[in-house]
Computed example of a mutant assay.
Amino acid sequence: MATPDFIKAIRASAGHQLLLLPGITAVVLDDDDRVLLMRRADDGRWALIGGIAEPGEQPAVTAVREVYEETAVECVAERIVMVEAQPEPVTYPNGDRCQYMDIVFRCRATGGEARVNDDEALEVGWLPVDALPRLHESQLFRIKQARTDEPTWFATMP
């Protein structure tokens, strides 16, 4: 994931100390109930589309922007399906520490052809939910929540 310029500016004075950042994840579904995934360039794993909200940017706008930037798929954010603080901070190879407050949106594809659209993905594609590649358990839970009509999920215990 490319580091946004505003984070680079904060890091110039904050160093590697822990930052709480606004993470956005998009679970993009199409009319055939397939989910849009990308194989990440940084670790080679399949994952949902996501990123960091820019200062002043509305979370739903971030979801739509990130999906287009990474996959060339146009979509609309339909609803928030989940809000969760990442349980443990991430420490990056350069020593930077971050913890993400993730807002997960269910999005509906409206146009575009899925393709690698930036340097963050090795490949992208529409995958049937019953034939997904190996995904982290948290990613599978996000997909499950997006496919239901349950109320927004949020953690109630620390």
Rank of each mutant, 00 (worst) to 15 (best):
V64K: 13
V116Q: 10
R79H: 01
C98T: 10
R79I: 08
E137Q: 06
A26L: 08
R108K: 15
E78W: 04
E74L: 14
I143D: 04
Y92D: 10
A41Y: 06
V64T: 15
P93H: 10
E78V: 12
L20P: 00
E137Y: 00
E88Y: 14
I52C: 05
D43S: 13
R34C: 14
R65D: 10
Y68E: 07
H136T: 08
K8Y: 04
L135S: 05
G56K: 09
A41K: 08
F105N: 15
E54I: 02
V124W: 03
A131Y: 03
V81H: 04
M38L: 14
M1F: 02
Q145N: 03
L19W: 00
V104H: 08
M82A: 09
W46H: 12
R40Y: 10
I7Y: 00
D130L: 05
E66S: 07
R11G: 00
E120F: 06
L122H: 07
F6G: 01
R115L: 06
M157D: 09
E57H: 08
D33S: 06
E57N: 10
R97Q: 15
P22F: 01
T25H: 04
R97C: 15
Q145Y: 00
A131V: 01
E120G: 14
F141M: 06
P22C: 02
P22R: 03
L29T: 02
R108I: 12
D31V: 04
D130W: 01
L140Y: 00
G111C: 10
K8E: 07
D43N: 15
A146S: 10
L19T: 06
G95K: 09
A2T: 09
A146Q: 03
A155I: 00
L122A: 10
A121L: 13
R142H: 05
T25R: 05
V124R: 10
